[in-house]
Amino acid sequence: MAGQVYYEDIEAGSEIPALVKYPTTMQLVKYAGASGDYYQIHYDKDFAIANGLPGVIVHGWLTLSFLGQMVTDWLGDQGALVKLSGSYRGMNKVHEDIICNGKVAKKYIEEGGNYARVEIWAENPQGEKTVTGAAVVTLPSRA
């Protein structure tokens, strides 16, 4: 991991390091167990297809977890996540890369805190945005 990121280091438009994940059906089963979300579209291919889906699809919350990891990896020990949101626009299939990206939309000081709003999104290998969202974070200052 790179060193601590500071408020002074970023500007609107700054990209944060991308994260690529490759979920398998086994990971979806693990996530189902850890989260309690046992909806069969996430591990039972026959059930998923009978529901009109192309196959087993990744939990939206799992893709949002990947985006959360990207943001918290970037924030380091001294940054903090204030808000995280995602809209599930498309489906991620298993055994495909999920590419997580983020870009600073703006930075601002409010009540003494150094904030940034970061646009975040996940893409499938076809370049389609499957989850789009935002993170609001606080960053330490060099001052």
Partner: peptide
Amino acid sequence: KKFAEAIEDPNPRWLKEAPPTFPAALV
């Protein structure tokens, strides 16, 4: 630990503190 392993986020911080999407598990 189980949640962090399921999302495959190796950050050691999540052994003591909930990762961001952990509220999904508190149904």
